[in-house]
Design a protein around this nucleic acid. Sequence first.
DNA 1: AATCATCCCTGAACGC
DNA 2: TGCGTTCAGGGATGAT
Length: 266
Amino acid sequence: MPELPEVETIRRDLEPFLNGRTLVRIDHQDPRRYRDLARALGASILGIGRRGKYLMLDLGAIEMIVHLGMTGQVGVGDPALFRHLRVSCLLDSGEVFFLNDPRRFGKVLVVDKGDYSSLPTLSAMGPEPLGPDYRFEPFYQICRQVRTIKSHLLDQRLVAGVGNIYADEALHLARIHPSQGYLTKPEAQRLFEAVPKVLWSGVVNRGTTFKDYRDGMGRYGGNQDFLRVYDREGEPCQECGTLIVKTRVAQRGTYYCPRCQSLKKR
DNA sequence: AATCATCCCTGAACGC
DNA sequence: TGCGTTCAGGGATGAT
């Protein structure tokens, strides 16, 4: 499940293969899912950026937006190696930029540059937690009045790019129960600082491969060996030794330490 | 306005 | 062995 660190790792991997290339041919079978891709024919890739979990290929007046969903994998190489090839783009280098996506939760579309009206989550995206516009006050104003903090970490409006794995990791580092609501200022401060810490760790370790994730070169990430709670049910908390518990919060599998992350009634 | 439930989709894990 | 069931969840959407 690619989140901010995984998408950033892919972005860095693909940059040297895509920068300056022209899209010579684009193939896919599902025009309802992969929209307006023909608009990109003949366009050159001026840069590859990222916003939250979205990859953005700068094509000048337009941009190609890629979201990997749960099982999407992009790369430059031989698409014949993949069973679930959904989109392939022939480059003027002769190489193929492709999306392989078994479960088809991923998206690829071409839009006028900056027009995200067909992507409500991207339109309302919160600040980049690893960027210069990440501010405590607006973060705190939301945290203090919501009922279940984890659902807002996943929501993308509070902060961009956090998914299920890094939400649990940040909450453990901040010692906050995933179902906690109405955070105090010190709690919000701890969470505000924990989010970029766990995301940087993910970037440094080239992403978390729990099952499906591969980087832009098809390699496994390394961050799974450094997770504090995610997928560690029954293992001892590294802070206090209490066994990590798995529950369900916001319709998501949720791991936490019942001692370090106690729920406060408010 | 916030919160919750449902849908999309496939493969792996599980139970009998 | 094999078949059917359950689970995983990001984001869009509709309901409460």
